[in-house]
Design a protein around this nucleic acid. Structure first.
Length: 485
RNA sequence: CGGGGUGUGGCCUAGUUGGUAAGGCGCGUGCUUUGGGAGCACGAGAUCGUGGGUUCGAGUCCCGCCACCCCGACCA
């Protein structure tokens, strides 16, 4: 029997979820703390996961007509100050450069907390005519938002993300664009990361500072808390007015352009961990898994090693003989460690399938296939497996999504009274669909009293007359309450 | 910003009434091993978070500071 190894040194989810999360991030070598408070180092395996979702999102962004470009890290104070609600919303979180070149700066420079302000200032010189619109831009960069309390991937002072910024001739086009952005996020979250999301609109209190309205996707983590997984904002003409972005329309009238912006960050690495992971570590969705199949050779003597190597070579060659098979990310672990060590090593990293091949398997022309998500073991003839691998990965991906969907469904409830909401959150937890009058005062009171926020007003929430949890006023439909990250 | 906690090789920890730092993991080398975190041997690795104070002598006692973690508050 194995002694207590470091698998058991991962805090159990049921004991302490944040502790579990931290253990997994650090021990799976996704990230580490750095010399800078609140800032993290993303290590190769964590960065590979980010690159996977980044690549997929980038494909969607380009497919919908957006071009990548780059804007400066610094935003002059005067520019940030132009849009009133924007500056008010972000000021507490902005880091400023006040000195440079050994001198005090005449004008402070903000380290961008987001780029609306500097982009608006820049594009006003590029937009003159309705023919210049729409202008569809996307930027992959880092931003800095000073945080009191940080958590690896979920909330760090500096983080990586994508921010799309678009300008349009009409309000309708801008509204369509908000949908386009959100659709990109829904696809990446659900189809790539197997994270089911609820789409909806943020309340006035929760919307982006400077936006007319904000749409979002919200996901449920395995501790039943909510995580905002992406936001898409309709900026209306707010920034265009502040920066003076005007164009001559086809009716020969000067108009302010309509703007949108939408963002998706490294927080989604954390979402992936907390949606699928278990007490042995990560459980990666195959699409986003840096390694999809790990082969663990087992042998004692040199002859056995040679025979096992030959079988593995045949398997990988057979796999690579079709385009779909060639695309499978296989890793053969020849390190001089014991098989048991490797099992745990790759389970911690969430590799979907492990293929054990030892002398007994070679004799039978098979391999022992182990599924990470449920640890089920199945002997499979190697040539058959090579042919089936792409389909098995696809099935695994679908299974993870369904599992997450079932989990969310099992933990989503209606609450009709304040007491039901409170007791539900304090008890089993989860998502609660509850009537709300639409008043920010009620929303804030509920937040102060029980720590729950309105995550969104879901698009698929049906019309249903009710009485607001807090004030008893008229409610048109239920909204999503939860405790959130 | 409030409350709590922790700082000792890379990691986890021990360190007695104050006496000159110990163990485990990991790391390196060698041999034996390999179907769920292998064993033995040898070896490298620490100005004990930091600054002061008390003392013949401080990891240990006193004061200040810093950092990090947890829980709140706040937060895209």
């Amino acid at each position: 029997m194995p002694k207590e190894g470091f698998v058991t040194s991962i805090t159990r989810q049921s004991e302490d979820f944040p502790g579990w999360y931290n253990d997994v991030v650090l021990k799976a070598e996704l990230a580490d703390y750095s010399a800078v408070k609140g800032c993290m180092i993303i290590r190769p395996y964590g960065y590979a996961i980010w690159e996977s979702m980044q690549g997929e999102l980038d494909r969607h962004i380009k497919a919908t007509g957006h071009s990548n470009m780059y804007f400066p890290l610094f935003v002059p104070k005067s520019l940030l100050d132009k849009e009133a609600s924007h500056v008010e919303g972000f000021n507490p979180q902005v880091a400023w450069v006040t000195h440079a070149g050994g001198k005090k700066l005449e004008e402070w420079l903000a380290i961008r907390p987001t780029s609306e302000a500097i982009i608006a200032e820049s594009v006003k010189d590029w937009i003159h005519s309705y023919r210049d619109l729409p202008m569809l831009m996307n930027i992959w960069n880092n931003v800095v938002r000073w945080e009191m309390r940080t958590r690896l991937f979920l909330r760090t002072t500096e983080f990586l993300w994508q921010e799309a910024h678009t300008f349009h001739a009409t309000a309708e086009e801008a509204a369509d664009e908000v949908r386009t952005g959100l659709d990109c996020y829904v696809k990446v979250a659900q189809d790539w990361l197997a994270i089911p999301v609820i789409q909806g609109r943020k309340t006035e209190a929760e919307k982006f500072p400077g936006a007319d309205y904000t749409w979002c996707i919200e996901a449920m983590m395995r501790d039943k808390k909510a995580l905002q997984a992406g936001t898409s904002h309709n900026l209306g003409q707010n920034f265009a007015r502040a920066a003076g972005i005007e164009f001559l329309d086809r009716d020969n009238i000067r108009k302010h352009a309509y703007g949108t912006s939408w963002g998706f960050s490294t927080r989604m690495v954390g979402a992936t961990i907390m949606t699928h992971g278990d007490d042995s570590g990560l459980v990666m969705p195959p699409n986003a898994a840096p390694v999809q199949v790990v082969v663990v050779p087992i042998f004692r003597k040199d002859e056995e090693k040679a025979a096992v190597a030959e079988a593995i070579d045949k398997f990988t060659a057979a796999l690579a003989s079709t385009p779909e098979g060639k695309a499978v990310r296989v890793k053969v672990d020849w390190r001089e460690e014991s098989p048991g060590f490797k099992y745990n090593h790759w389970e911690l990293r969430g590799v979907p399938f492990r293929l054990e091949i030892g002398p007994r398997d070679v004799a039978a022309g098979q391999g022992m296939l182990v599924k990470r998500v449920d640890r089920s073991k199945e002997p499979v003839p190697l040539m058959q497996l090579a042919a089936e691998m792409p389909a098995r990965l696809a099935a695994y991906q679908a299974e993870l999504f369904q599992r997450a969907l079932d989990f969310r469904a099992a933990n989503t409830h209606n609450a009709d009274t304040f007491e039901q909401l409170r007791d539900g959150l304090d008890g089993e937890g989860g998502f609660f669909m509850a009537p709300w009058c639409g008043d920010t005062k009620c929303e804030k009171q509920i937040n102060e009293e029980i720590g729950a926020t309105i995550r969104c007003i879901p698009f698929d929430s049906p019309d249903e007359k009710g009485k607001c949890l807090k004030c008893g006023g008229e409610s048109e439909r239920r909204v999503l309450f939860a405790r959130a990250y």
